[in-house]
Design a protein around this nucleic acid. Sequence first.
DNA 1: TATTTTATCTACTCATGGGTATATTGATTG
DNA 2: CAATCAATATACCCATGAGTAGATAAAATA
Lengths: 215, 215
Amino acid sequence: MPKSAVPVSDTALPSPFRSKAEREQDRADKREAVLLAAVRMFNARGYHATSLDDVAASLGVSKPTIYHYLGNKEQVLVECVNRGLSMLREAADAAAGAAGSGHDRLRAFLLRYACINMDDFGRCVIRTNEEVLSMDSATRFRARKREIDDAVRGMIAEGIADGSIAPVDIRFASFTLAGALNWPARWHDPDGPLSPQEVAEKLVDIALGGLTPRG
Amino acid sequence: MPKSAVPVSDTALPSPFRSKAEREQDRADKREAVLLAAVRMFNARGYHATSLDDVAASLGVSKPTIYHYLGNKEQVLVECVNRGLSMLREAADAAAGAAGSGHDRLRAFLLRYACINMDDFGRCVIRTNEEVLSMDSATRFRARKREIDDAVRGMIAEGIADGSIAPVDIRFASFTLAGALNWPARWHDPDGPLSPQEVAEKLVDIALGGLTPRG
DNA sequence: TATTTTATCTACTCATGGGTATATTGATTG
DNA sequence: CAATCAATATACCCATGAGTAGATAAAATA
């Protein structure tokens, strides 16, 4: 353990000597910073209209620095999309494992889903068209989105089974909900007066109205 | 009228001599063919990923020919978008002038709206992000979309007033409906088994469910 | 201390693609 | 028939931007 040669004290004085773990963390942080800067520009101007020179400049570094952290432009996009997809996946798993009726679980998930769609990385999932990806990445992208959609359909099916959701066409219901809740990725302004949470609640209430059984 | 020098007969023999009107029609037809070829490629691959060389090649002509009919690449896109917007506008005017309750008129419009969003030019309206346009075009684009949205909001308001629509938040209702019905522009496959009309009916039924007053 | 590794830069290459200059041909017009 | 105009092509220019080569300097390691 040569690392313990580095002074370690209870008072944790900031040391200019960084441990291996710290250096790895530094690297990960920088990589993350690149992704965040990139996704914001992609969302604001579009993938093709954003050059890696622009992204680098916004971070005060040069383009090769980005290539030091990520393989190429497409990988930058793919990583951003994957972060968004992971958030969605976690939300789906959480909802699937929660208590309550199908309707309750669906509602809880949709609220989270809508919020993620207004987040930097979530928005990128919606705004990224498969055509801009390589065939390989596009296939993986489609598969991961499909997982989310399957989860939604599952919740709808369970809601129909337990009577908390009206007996709608499951596929079209999921299309309708997805469309309604994806759309804010295009119009919601993070700097505007409407918080994602507020928007999500209003949209979910209205969108879910059509699935609620009639008294 | 020098035009009448061209032989005109009741039997309307096809003549190789074209009148001025015919020549203008030819030109308009060619222009239209360029737009249709372009919008299909824009929709399939995205605006930035489509070169005018590609569009020209798909028509069996060369790029300068396109420039003979349209000023530049952005104008090609703008014309396509405008065709879609005009269709939407007509549908909105027709619905606004129709008989029936607010709910009836809204429903009729939404069916048409959804179908237009699965048409070549309508799809282009949805898929075109303002960021790819010049500031000037983007402003006009936004204004025309806003007109459509205002029409929807008007119909919702009338429906609420006449009791055919539940007293929802008008702005969020229009966002929800728009999202649900815009989304097919991204997923509907014109060559697939689902006709736009079928899709439109199912989506509108589900999306409108949330606005229908409870018994 | 010598060597290697990491982080970063400057300065390139090179393909793509928007847009243009200009030639050609055939029809239109005077 | 001459002059013009319309439609099209070939061959180009030039900016942008992805991606790379290679230098440098600092830190880490042996």
